[in-house]
Every structure is written in C-alpha cells, then in structure tokens.
Amino acid sequence: MAKVKGAIVVNTERCKGCNLCVVACPAKVLSLSPDSNLKGYNFSYMSNADSCVGCAACAYVCPDACITVYKVKNKTE
C-alpha cells in the first residue's frame, strides 16, 4: 500500500500571513506562527506536518508565491 507524503517550505520572509493557505489546506496542516517575520507578519508554517499529502493547494492559492511543495510516494514501513 502506497502512502503519499508531502512537505512544504514557506519562504517566511516573503509570507504576509494572509491565512489563505491555512484556509485552503484540505488536511489542516498549516497555521500562522505566533512568531512574526521582519515585516511583522505572522508567517505560515506546518503545525501538523505529518498530515501533509503534498497536494499543493496551499501553494496554488498563496498570492505571494511563498510556498514550495514536495511530494513522495512511499511504501509504508
């Protein structure tokens, strides 16, 4: 049985904390960080990284092209 695993990298300095990726993620992976970047925005991060399936929904909706998405098809250990 193949399980899809994904991960994202947020360009935290480019992120404006608009929250659209958080809303768009079907797996509830993302949250806005309590920390803020140099511009004062609470950037997005994977608060629930295990659930990410690499669907890239977050990256498609991100207005500022902050999110890079990776995905592997992995046999269950």
Binding site: K5, G6, V9, G54, A65, I67, T68, V69, Y70, K71
Partner: peptide, 13 residues
Amino acid sequence: DIIDPKNLVYAKT
C-alpha cells in the same frame, strides 16, 4: 527526506 529537489511538485516560477 521529502524536501529534496527530486520530489518537487510546486515552486515559484
């Protein structure tokens, strides 16, 4: 392991 260029599906153009 996942964050590896070979697994890239989306990046800023």
